[in-house]
């Protein structure tokens, strides 16, 4: 059983590390949500349901709703921009493809905070975007671009766009574009062949792109913190406030537990859908 030994030997370090720093901490979040807080900012003794009950207030529901719609809108806009971009890069001549791809990746390699900051100064009341819009007459001098849910969506789209383009490009690059020609040949108009042939052909890439944007969007914290203001707060901000301002760890845990469940939902949905798709394939394969 040497093979088995080697397997354990090379797997054990990461298994142990991730158990210690991922599995146990995640379970701990759920446990601490049922603990009372102590006055020193730590975790008290005994068990309580008060923190869970406190989540049902209208204020939290509003925040949860806002978190959801901002994330959904961000995902939708990212997809809308990434589909043509991924398509174009995949259809570009070989030597251009890598260059364009690099152009998409470079913003990802720049500091995340710096990118958010760049938008903060762009949207600043004295910043160029505001001045430009004012000059055209689109906004009045009192309008605020910053500290608004729309600003949160804008900057989130900016941050997540490269992550959306990459999986779509990867799927489009493997796509056989002769299928689009075949569809056109059979009478489909450009948009019909896009919707009926191209989109189903890259559906895996689209699913990945959606997950890659939607899940981190749900947990956004810095972007609403720096450009959202009170009207753009999301669950992430509330968690941070409970930790850093109120020093109420059980409350933060309860909020985090809700976020964990919210993140799991789309993942489970995708897994179930994929399994269903596979099963129907197998059944058809067994048919004579």
């Amino acid at each position: 059983m040497r093979r088995r030994q080697t397997e354990w030997l090379v797997s054990l370090p990461t298994l142990a590390w991730l158990t210690l720093f991922v599995v146990i901490p995640t379970l701990l979040v759920f446990v601490i949500a049922f603990r009372p807080a102590n006055p020193y900012g730590g975790i008290g003794r005994g068990w309580t349901l008060d923190t869970i009950r406190a989540l049902a207030t209208p204020n939290y529901l509003l925040i949860a709703w806002r978190t959801l719609w901002i994330s959904l809108l961000t995902t939708a806009i990212c997809l809308l921009l990434a589909l043509p971009a991924g398509y174009t890069i995949a259809r570009a001549p070989e030597r251009w493809r890598n260059r364009l791809l690099l152009c998409v990746i470079i913003p990802f390699w720049t500091s995340f905070l710096v990118r958010v900051f760049a938008w903060r100064s762009l949207l600043h009341p004295e910043g160029p975007v505001k001045k430009a819009l004012e000059a055209i007459g689109l906004v009045g001098p009192e309008a605020t671009l910053l500290y608004h849910p729309a600003a949160v969506v804008l900057v989130m789209v900016y941050t997540f766009l490269p992550f959306t383009i990459l999986p779509i490009y990867a799927a489009a690059e493997k796509f056989d574009f002769r299928l689009v020609e075949a569809a056109r040949d059979l009478g489909a108009r450009p948009f019909q062949s896009f919707r009926k042939i191209f989109l189903p052909g890259i559906r895996r890439g689209v699913v990945t792109a959606v997950l890659v944007v939607f899940i981190p969007a749900l947990g956004s914290y810095i972007i609403p913190d720096l450009v959202g203001g009170p009207s753009g707060e999301m669950i992430g901000n509330k968690i941070a406030q409970r930790v850093f301002s109120d020093r109420n760890l059980p409350h933060a845990s309860a909020l985090s537990a809700v976020l964990v469940l919210a993140v799991l939902a789309p993942l489970v949905a995708v897994l179930v859908l994929q399994r269903k798709g596979k099963k129907s394939d197998i059944i058809m394969g067994e048919a004579p």
């Binding site: 002769r178 299928l179 020609e181 075949a182 040949d185 489909a188 189903p200 052909g201 559906r203």
Partner: peptide, 20 residues
């Protein structure tokens, strides 16, 4: 005329059947 407006149809070398 674009391909979808021509009364002409093609059999592709790779067949280009829609896999889904």
């Amino acid at each position: 005329l674009p391909p979808d407006k021509r009364k002409v149809n093609t059999i592709f070398q790779s067949y280009a059947l829609f896999p889904h």
